[in-house]
Amino acid sequence: MSMNIQADRGLIRVGGLSHVFHCNHYNAHLQMAVLLGEGIEDGFDPRELLSRGARMVVEYLREKGYSESDLLAEYTACGFGVLRQEDAYHWVAEHSHYGEKTYIHGRPEPSCFFDAGFISGMTGRATREVNCRHAGGGMDRFELGAAVEPLPPFIKNPEAMTDAPARFDFPECAPMSTDVDEQAIIEAVGGMPLIGKPASEGGNGLILAFGVALTIHYADYYNFISYEVYRRMVAIGVPSDMARESFVLAGHVCAFNTLGGIMESDAWDQMIKPMCQDVSDWVHGIVAVVNALGWGVWRVEKIEPGKELVIRIYNSYEGVGFRRLYPPEAGEKQLSFLAMGAVRGIAHLLWKIDIRERPGLNEQLYMQTFNNPKGYWSVEQTHAIAAGDGYDRIVTRAP
């Protein structure tokens, strides 16, 4: 798999599509947020939507010339696991990110919807999961059904990108500087072996790093499953702030586990921590790491330690992705759910639990302190690429 990191645009390109690094906790919570859409509309099945999103991406790649072997290799390299055809009617996931590393709160059920959609897009046949680790089974197993017609193209508009300004190049804002070398950090992260390896190379198709399991996921998949459910919720009268909350929470969970895991890692201690003189430098350090994850180009506009953090995001995968999927401009601005949760999460990492003290990240700490209503920061998106602005702007403030 050829992965092209375009740091000046905040992009990771694989096979012509934008990819983003995300952890198993984000993937689990985002999937659970989508499943909350059950019953909001007659005939709408969020489980089918989760599979359809994967199928659409794979069908797009097949149109661009991908072979079955190309798709299987990319599935593994992106950290989704290892797929194998068992017989004419069955595939198995010998290893599966969604089967082994994600989770569902509540009743166990087959939940490898992405895998099923990936196989369906690859084979051109309806696919359902008949055995699932989450439901107490062994290896994830999928059964093929009848042939299916290709889905309509899901990309409606071209991908519009902009040039990001240099760090701190905001004349209207207070001057800011740091000794944190962003370019060196981006190059170091880009040089890490964050790729799933096949069994022939001693791997299992999973990417384990920073205490989490990572995927190099399809940005279009994330955007499609998120916005299709969110738009349906708002259409039936669910207040937009309530509809977005579960999606923002997924970003908050991601910040705790992935960004927090990075800041507690040996790699951080060895390379980035020596550059940090104060808490503001920790913000600049983790933002530099984010700029190697395919989330767009993050720029720190303002830091008032313990009180306020403002981040601008150029080419955010959510804003750019919304414009690819829907009409040119949205009628609202607070649509970059991951970014809102992640920016709030960075503030909580530094001013709610103080990650600099390496408290040890676990579910108990998350529930008792990080996600505790006491001292919970507000978050607002004031500018949005989805709404026609040149960048996303996220503001989080202490209560």
Rank of each mutant, 00 (worst) to 15 (best):
Gly79Ala: 04
Gly121Ile: 04
Glu172Met: 02
His97Glu: 02
Trp91Gly: 03
Gly99Trp: 01
Glu159Asn: 04
Thr162Pro: 03
Tyr89Ala: 15
Asn131Gly: 01
Arg167Asn: 06
Gly106Met: 05
His97Ala: 01
Asp115Thr: 05
Val92Asp: 04
Ser111Arg: 14
Cys112Lys: 13
Arg107Trp: 11
Arg84Glu: 15
Ile119Gly: 00
Glu172Cys: 02
Ala93Ser: 15
Ile119Glu: 00
Arg133Thr: 03
Ser120Met: 11
Pro152Glu: 03
Pro153Cys: 06
Tyr103Asn: 09
Ser111Met: 14
Ala93Gly: 11
Leu83Ala: 10
Glu109Pro: 11
Arg128Ile: 13
Thr102Trp: 12
Gly137Asp: 15
Glu143Gln: 10
Ala116Ile: 11
Ala93His: 15
His97Ser: 03
Asn157Ala: 13
Arg167Met: 12
Ile155Lys: 03
Gly121Phe: 00
Gly121Met: 00
Lys156Ser: 12
Arg133Ala: 03
Glu149Ser: 00
Phe142Ala: 05
Ala116Tyr: 08
Gly136Gln: 12
Thr102Asn: 08
Val82Ile: 11
Ala126Gly: 14
Met139Ser: 08
Glu94Phe: 07
Asp163Ile: 09
Glu86Lys: 14
Ala166Arg: 07
His97Tyr: 05
Glu143Thr: 05
Ala135Cys: 09
His90Glu: 00
Asn131Ile: 01
Gly137Tyr: 15
Gly79Tyr: 04
His95Trp: 01
Glu129Ser: 02
Val130Asp: 05
Glu94Thr: 11
Asn157Ser: 07
Met122Trp: 00
Ala146His: 05
Ala164Phe: 06
Ala166Leu: 04
Cys112Ala: 14
Pro171Tyr: 02
Ala160Asp: 08
Val148Ile: 15
Ser96Ile: 07
Ala135Leu: 07
Ser96Arg: 09
Asn131Cys: 09
Pro152Cys: 00
Pro152Arg: 00
His90Asn: 02
Lys101Val: 08
Ala93Asp: 10
Lys101Asp: 10
His105Met: 14
Asn157Asp: 06
Asp87Glu: 06
Glu143Ala: 04
Arg125Cys: 11
Val82Gly: 02
Ala160Gly: 05
Ser96His: 02
Gly124Gln: 07
Glu129Val: 04
Pro171Val: 05
Ala147Arg: 10
Ile119Ala: 00
